[in-house]
Design a protein around this nucleic acid. Sequence first.
DNA 1: CGCAACAGTTAGAACCTATAACCATTTCGC
DNA 2: GCGAAATGGTTATAGGTTCTAACTGTTGCG
Lengths: 177, 177
Amino acid sequence: MAETPRERYRTQVRAEIKQHAWEQIANAGVSALSLNAIAKQMGLSGPALYRYFAGRDELITELIRDAYRSLADTVRAAAGADLIALAGVIRDWARADPQRYFLIYGTPVPGYHAPADTTVISDEIMAVLLDASGTLPRVLSFWTRLQGVLSLELAGHFAGMAFDPALLLADELTDLS
Amino acid sequence: MAETPRERYRTQVRAEIKQHAWEQIANAGVSALSLNAIAKQMGLSGPALYRYFAGRDELITELIRDAYRSLADTVRAAAGADLIALAGVIRDWARADPQRYFLIYGTPVPGYHAPADTTVISDEIMAVLLDASGTLPRVLSFWTRLQGVLSLELAGHFAGMAFDPALLLADELTDLS
DNA sequence: CGCAACAGTTAGAACCTATAACCATTTCGC
DNA sequence: GCGAAATGGTTATAGGTTCTAACTGTTGCG
């Protein structure tokens, strides 16, 4: 497993590219992600990034994978807690970077299919939820209600109405526990 | 209200542009919408479309407005029905053109704000729902649960799990009526 | 040491949005 | 009806994007 300096450098640069990519996504959404802009920010010139990612799509796919992994990590770290607590953890994760949330649960691109390993990660999350809720119908209700509140809240569809989404979420989950 | 031939032609061309735009969106999502491609499909050459729309953003804004109006129309047409029926109508509307649904309820672009009149339309939809459900907390629960099922279903996140989203939705709404 | 793998470069094709300048036609005011 | 203005269309062009090709220098391994 001895890492050659080359590999070291390579993974480090890849990480830096993804770092800039996340900043762009957080600020302007994934549609505004520009390889050129990232290259310029890094002092590189355009096509250099193609040494590290086959193209824009592969970079985005990698970001989606990382988003899934990040969510799975935070859920796993809260394993054992009850559904209310899990919902709070997931909501906090989503609010920390809404565009990262939308990368997973937002508008899908017709024809694009997430890499197979993301479904594995997704199953892992479901396993934690199932462990906390007991039955499958319950976790399904939990999941859809949570997504309902989150997608509307993060997309700003609760903007006008003066109420706390956290309270709505709590209300939606009390009869599940 | 006498329509001059000019206005006639203008609104007709605008409608044709939007028609092609909707096809592109349905097939490849809004990010793939290309004014150039639309112009070519219509036998026009690039910049001609700027006579009809100030730019890509204005066209998309107009499409969002139309999507809101379309949803409001279908909801209004079902006014008086109970919540289960309303949910079915809305779900059918969304499934008929998922990308149109996502244009309203999908990933928001940071910094972009929907035109003010859409909130008016949104309020109108809420009024119908409120009329069918009675209390505000109930319509809020209805709305978030419906959105939860719809966003997950239309984004394909129920792909692996073998069950009928319609049944899940019905289950989620039975205790609300 | 030598050579192959690798990181980076510039050039360029094929797109895209958008503006500018220009032309022909249609419409409108007088 | 006539002339001016508004309108719909064109091409040219600037600047942006992704991505490929060809080339250069450097690094690292046998």
